[in-house]
Design a protein around this nucleic acid. Structure first.
Lengths: 314, 314
DNA sequence: GCACTTATGCTCTGAGTTAGCATAAGTGCA
DNA sequence: TGCACTTATGCTAACTCAGAGCATAAGTGC
């Protein structure tokens, strides 16, 4: 046991620590979910230290994102707070407080790059045949699981549950668990070299600075879970949209297809949207009605928001 | 706008800040949900600064709770991170990272007080007729809402949604929103004096140090939400229990009654528990079977855990 | 005019919930 | 001993909702 110093509550002035705000900012660009990143070749998330003048953690996050990318955020929610020991060897320690922000990309003024989620976490996209999963990841996970006899059963079950192997269903919101499993099994570049399998064929997907890809996974997980019970998708949509566009957005976020007719029914019966009377005819087929999000629902119900179907066929 | 100093990511050594861990530790004592508190007369939650030697935020929280209360925690999950400007006027700033812990109170060795949730947040208990709500809180909220003509509609709707007035349903997990509404309307002792209504009759419930009651509300909200989709109730139960005890626990947590037969069916059909073969006959009625939580389910399914009924009649 | 695409309406079916009815098996007391 | 009362447990009718499929509408491109 290390020395805890036997400090008690009261002497709140602890040792020197710095707090960093980290933003996972999401928008749909060309019908693909993207994250706002900075830097080449290793992308990183917008981030900055908490300064004495900042009014609140949330305000600080907004300011840093604005300063670094020129974009003003709308929706913003706290994700998670990390404090990794390994980050800096020195005596100061960094606590990272991560946030999830949702916007529309239309502001042409900003800088920073919109990177596609699925170029960063490719295995999360199962809208088409997930050959990446079945052909490259699954065999390697099984090998990793079996490589340690005493843990094999446990590991195998964990892989099966998180990646939907064998008879387990694919669960879209286990994004973080999947990333961590890949990390632990040495299949991503961020994994500690010691954990790497001897003949490992690293899983594709661009790594990010530090543990930013983990923060991204946390954000994606939260977003996928949340679209199921709160009307947050609309934060990513233009003011007016067709139900087809909305469905495309949900499918892109969830990384999975949904049954069109059921999707429409669910959206309509919940009074989440209202008809604008206009139609959009550039659809390539029958023109679609244009709808608008009924912002009032945010006040009307604190919960029981957007229920979204989980089925898979179109 | 204040001076942001135009620091960019990279110079991570921000200004002096201290990080504090705050623990909301819950256990069932005499069939009532309780929180572990310290100090008299104003109770506070166990807390302590993050020190350089701490391995992780979670480990630090465990250590502080152990040191201050002599109790070892089992289940522990992060709740939320706050940074209130008003806390200390000086140049250092405190970031509070709160955790929710679940235990059983059996260890007689510890110190600290188990305080009943509902002595701290009495309006949250609607198992019996909620006269506190209907007779004292509701009228005052309506008055507050009406006191500002231009905001009356909005405020009234907010009150109705969060407290289940008019035709809105009571939503057990809006604990935090209810506390914040009471805070903003000047009905709790913690409210800024300026917000207090001229003839306010403060709502009963023991206040705590600083914003600890807010952290408690956050914990209760999380717990209420989580028992609905993850098997966390069992962390609060003795190793063996009857379904009646389990139901009592759930009802006490949710602050609301559930339909007994449906509850039993739900628990059983999900394979969450296994029969021990023993019976408990001190029930005052027909003896009940003793069950044990099947810990394996924690591995078997990452989600789709304990579904609990939401109905209200017994 | 025809093939193709997307939009939209409607229905069948099965699963899961809510709410009761009914019975079992103890305890406490007249 | 028997009755009132309590808690435990089994079972089912009514209802709600999600999943899946059938069918039609109304555009575009050739």
């Amino acid at each position: 046991m290390f020395d805890r110093g036997f400090q008690r509550h009261g002497d709140e002035a602890g040792p020197v620590i710095s707090a960093e705000l980290l933003a996972v900012v999401v928008a749909m660009v060309d019908d693909e979910p993207c994250v706002l990143t900075l830097g080449e070749p290793q992308p990183r998330l917008p981030a900055g230290p908490l300064l004495p003048g900042h009014r609140s953690l949330q305000a600080a996050t907004r300011l840093w994102v604005e300063e670094q990318t020129g974009r003003r955020l709308g929706y913003l929610e706290q994700l998670y707070t990390f404090a990794d020991l390994d980050r800096d060897g020195g005596s100061t320690r960094t606590v990272s407080i991560s946030y999830l922000g949702l916007t529309t990309p239309n502001a042409e003024t900003g800088f920073g790059d919109w990177r596609r989620w699925y170029s960063l976490l490719p295995w999360e996209d199962v809208r088409s045949e997930p050959t990446l999963l079945t052909e490259r990841i699954e065999p390697q996970l099984r090998e990793w699981a079996g490589s340690e006899k005493s843990l094999a059963g446990e590991r195998l079950q964990r892989c099966a549950v998180t990646f939907g192997l064998d008879d387990h269903p694919w669960q879209p919101d286990l994004v973080l668990q999947r990333y961590e499993l890949l990390y632990e099994s040495g299949l991503v570049p961020e994994s500690p070299p010691a954990w790497r399998q001897p003949d490992a064929d690293l899983v594709p997907g661009d790594p990010m600075v530090g543990d930013h890809r983990r923060a991204l996974a946390t954000g994606l997980a939260r977003l996928r879970a949340k679209i199921g019970y709160r009307p947050v998708v609309f934060e990513l949509m233009a003011p007016e949209f067709t139900l087809g566009q909305l469905q495309d957005c949900v499918e892109a976020l969830a990384g999975r297809a949904v049954h069109t007719q059921n999707f429409r029914r669910l959206i309509e019966q919940q009074d989440l949207v209202e008809d604008t009377g206009k139609v959009e005819s550039r659809t390539g087929g029958r023109p679609a009605r244009l709808y608008r999000f009924r912002r009032e629902v945010l006040q009307e119900r604190q919960a029981a928001g957007t229920k979204l179907p989980t089925g898979r066929s179109r």
